[in-house]
Structure formats: C-alpha cells, structure tokens
Amino acid sequence: MADADGRREARTGEQVRKYLLAEINAALRRPGMFGGEIALRIHFDAMAFADDRERLWSEERDSLQGRRAFLSTGVRGAFESLWGAGTDDMAASVYAEFAHRHGWLHLDRVLSRDEYDKLIGVTTAWCESDRTLGQTLGMFGPPSIYCGGTSPYFPKALVYATGHPRDPLLCFHFWNEFLDSRTDRTALYDEPMLLAVRGGGSGFADGFTFTPAGTNRRGGA
C-alpha cells in the first residue's frame, strides 16, 4: 500500500509475523523445496526474533545437542547415526516439536484426546510388524502434518498431534530409496516402509519404537 506521496508503506509487525508463520509451515511440510535443514534453521531464527523468543530458541538448540538430537551435521546427522541415513523430512519432524510448543505449527488435523491416547496405546503393537505408508494412513487416518513429497520413492514422515502444546508429537518415519544401480531405477519398496515411531524420550534415541525394517536398518541393534 502506498501513502499520499506514493511511497510504499512498510509492512506491520503482524503482517511480517503471519508471513513467517506461513513460510515455516510450508517449509516443515516440504523441507527439500525450501533448502533443507539449513533453511529450517534460518526460518526459525527469523520467527524467534519476530516473537521475541530468541532465548528460548537458543535453549532449544542446546537441548537438542544435549539429547544427541543435533550433531555437528545437524538433526539429519542424529538420524544418520541412528540408522545410516538422515533426510530433510526426518529433521523437519524434530523442528516441528518446538513449533508446536510455541503455537507456530498449523495442524491439518487436530487429534482428540481419545484419538491421541489410542494412537499411543497401539504404537508398540503396530511396530511389531513391518508396515507400509498406505497401511499406516489406513489405520490412523490423515496426519496432523505430512513432511516430505508425495512420491512413493522417497522417505517421509507423518506427524500426529493434539492441540495441546505439552503433548509430544507422534512421528512415523518411513523409508524408501532407489536400488544402487545406474540403470535400474527400481525402488527398494513399492511404497515407503515404516522404520520407527518417535515420541518423547529423555534422549533422542530413547524416543523410538522400531519396526523389524527399522531394526534391520540399524544392523540388528
């Protein structure tokens, strides 16, 4: 909008905040399109400044390092140390935790208390067998946020959440990849396979419940 002299007026603080919130939520859902984990950190730095939460965001980064959820190679590095690969969608699910606690995360679906408690109650049994992305969506319904693209050939994460910031996010981590061949573009799985469900835990690795596929990827650990 221009003033009476034709000069452009600066946007208000609330307009800037809404823009940053929209960018954060888009980047969490499609982190690869926005520049990956580095871009997520930049977005969160800007949002923390706009909301005067720089100290809390700094403390969060320290906490991630203390829990071994952030290594010298970032959050992606923490996943890589866990099962040999770290992707932007995996990292996005961790950044989403801080966003949820501080009211930045816009949920596509808000789980009721009953839905959330049921999900927690069946997680261990669900992970006793290998599960596909389609089976998981069929069982638990659409996620609160979907991290990653829709292509079945690449990893992704489904995040389920209530509207209560203190409730840990429940993150379902799926894996797929192309077979190692210059000519063979066949994927390892017909659709992404669940490796683990993550939720809570004092240490990063403590929060995972692994499927057989996830345990195998860790070398049987």
Results as ranks from 00 to 15, higher is better:
residue 131 R to N: 03
residue 63 S to N: 10
residue 39 A to D: 03
residue 58 S to Y: 10
residue 40 L to K: 02
residue 82 L to Q: 07
residue 160 Y to T: 13
residue 115 E to K: 00
residue 95 Y to F: 15
residue 183 T to G: 06
residue 183 T to D: 13
residue 3 D to S: 11
residue 221 A to G: 02
residue 8 R to W: 15
residue 45 D to L: 10
residue 91 A to G: 11
residue 41 R to D: 15
residue 105 L to C: 07
residue 75 V to F: 14
residue 122 V to N: 01
residue 173 H to F: 13
residue 174 F to D: 01
residue 175 W to R: 02
residue 102 H to Y: 15
residue 178 F to Q: 01
residue 168 P to M: 13
residue 84 G to P: 01
residue 135 Q to H: 09
residue 211 T to D: 02
residue 220 G to I: 09
residue 142 P to K: 11
residue 100 H to N: 05
residue 11 R to I: 14
residue 27 A to W: 09
residue 9 E to M: 15
residue 123 T to S: 12
residue 78 A to L: 14
residue 92 A to V: 05
residue 97 E to R: 05
residue 72 S to L: 07
residue 59 E to Q: 08
residue 95 Y to N: 00
residue 87 T to K: 06
residue 160 Y to H: 11
residue 174 F to S: 02
residue 191 E to T: 02
residue 163 G to T: 11
residue 140 F to I: 11
residue 83 W to V: 08
residue 149 G to H: 00
residue 208 F to L: 04
residue 68 R to T: 02
residue 34 F to K: 04
residue 5 D to F: 15
residue 70 F to T: 00
residue 168 P to L: 09
residue 46 A to M: 06
residue 125 A to I: 14
residue 219 G to Q: 09
residue 46 A to I: 03
residue 24 I to K: 03
residue 85 A to F: 15
residue 137 L to C: 04
residue 187 A to W: 13
residue 144 S to D: 01
residue 199 G to T: 13
residue 134 G to N: 11
residue 33 M to C: 01
residue 101 R to M: 11
residue 182 R to Y: 13
residue 76 R to E: 12
residue 180 D to C: 08
residue 140 F to V: 09
residue 36 G to T: 04
residue 48 A to S: 15
residue 61 R to F: 14
residue 193 M to E: 05
residue 216 N to Y: 13
residue 215 T to P: 00
residue 198 R to G: 10
residue 132 T to M: 09
residue 141 G to N: 12
residue 88 D to C: 05
residue 25 N to D: 08
residue 97 E to T: 15
residue 6 G to L: 12
residue 153 Y to K: 03
residue 116 Y to F: 14
residue 209 T to C: 06
residue 164 H to A: 10
residue 150 T to Y: 10
residue 4 A to P: 01
residue 152 P to H: 10
residue 14 E to Q: 14
residue 153 Y to R: 06
residue 93 S to N: 07
residue 194 L to K: 02
residue 113 R to V: 06
residue 149 G to T: 00
residue 129 S to L: 11
residue 73 T to M: 05
residue 49 F to P: 00
residue 102 H to L: 10
residue 209 T to V: 15
residue 26 A to C: 07
residue 68 R to Y: 12
residue 27 A to V: 02
residue 114 D to Q: 14
residue 96 A to M: 00
residue 138 G to P: 07
residue 156 K to L: 09
residue 56 L to E: 07
residue 170 L to N: 01
residue 74 G to M: 12
residue 50 A to F: 15
residue 213 A to Q: 04
residue 167 D to G: 10
residue 169 L to F: 05
residue 83 W to C: 04
residue 53 R to V: 11
residue 152 P to I: 02
residue 141 G to I: 06
residue 199 G to C: 12
residue 113 R to N: 05
residue 215 T to E: 08
residue 184 D to V: 13
residue 95 Y to P: 00
residue 128 E to A: 12
residue 163 G to S: 12
residue 12 T to I: 03
residue 127 C to Y: 11
residue 161 A to M: 05
residue 202 S to H: 08
residue 108 D to I: 01
residue 24 I to D: 00
residue 171 C to R: 10
residue 55 R to V: 14
residue 7 R to V: 13
residue 76 R to C: 12
residue 104 W to S: 03
residue 133 L to N: 05
residue 216 N to K: 14
residue 90 M to Y: 15
residue 204 F to A: 06
residue 131 R to T: 08
residue 11 R to A: 14
residue 56 L to V: 09
residue 185 R to F: 15
residue 102 H to D: 07
residue 59 E to D: 14
residue 93 S to G: 04
residue 45 D to R: 04
residue 83 W to L: 04
residue 51 D to Y: 15
residue 54 E to D: 05
residue 82 L to R: 13
residue 143 P to E: 00
residue 67 R to M: 14
residue 29 R to Q: 08
residue 99 A to Q: 04
